[in-house]
């Protein structure tokens, strides 16, 4: 069986949304920062059990406040990756509030919370940040090394089809 799902990547500016997609879809990474304007669409097919899941991935321009993003970008999404930069507190300080907002817009979509750029800080520091945020199920990742990237998209795909 084949099925298509819309996935959106959201979060503040420069947290690595585009880089995560680049890594996941094209197995590439670049240190250059080219901010995304508007939205960019990408696609990748994943196999989840006996199901072929086509992810239509919407890379949405970074925004500190999700409410400022055109709602129609978010609407219809079957799954959400909320990405923050584990080295920059400002990108996760309003996390709870942002997640609440997204839950309001997309009550049925599973959300994965990603602490990206883990390659930049030590394990201890990561623990500290995660304890500070105090939220279950946050996944750490690095678009640069590729660590956990595949797993994150797979987990979301699984959550969307179940």
């Amino acid at each position: 069986m084949a099925i298509s799902k819309k996935v959106i990547l959201v979060g503040h500016f420069g947290v690595g949304k585009t880089s995560l997609i680049r890594r996941f879809v094209h197995q590439k990474f670049s240190d250059d920062y080219l901010t995304t304007i508007g939205v960019k669409i990408d696609k990748k097919v994943l196999q989840v059990d006996d199901m072929e899941v086509t992810l239509i991935i919407w890379d949405i321009a970074g925004e500190t406040n999700q409410a400022k993003i055109p709602k129609s970008y978010q609407l219809g999404a079957h799954g959400v990756l909320y990405v923050f930069d584990i080295t920059r507190p400002s990108t996760y300080q309003n996390l709870h509030e942002q997640l609440d907002y997204l839950k309001g817009v997309l009550p049925n979509a599973p959300v994965e919370i990603i602490a990206n750029k883990k390659d930049l800080i030590s394990e201890e520091k990561q623990e500290e940040v995660l304890n500070e945020i105090a939220l279950e199920g946050i996944r750490t990742s690095s678009a640069k090394t590729g660590e956990s990237v595949e797993e994150i998209f797979e987990a979301l795909a699984k959550a969307m089809v179940s």
């Binding site: 298509s4 799902k5 819309k6 508007g38 669409i41 696609k43 239509i56 219809g76 079957h78």
Partner: peptide, 27 residues
């Protein structure tokens, strides 16, 4: 409408990735 997921297509010649085009048109 909102998701931009393709529900059906017709094409004279298979040229582009239809999922991507549909997504972009929706965006």
């Amino acid at each position: 409408r909102d998701s931009g997921i393709v529900m059906g297509t017709f094409s004279r010649k298979e040229s582009v990735d239809q999922d991507m085009v549909a997504g972009m048109l929706t965006a």
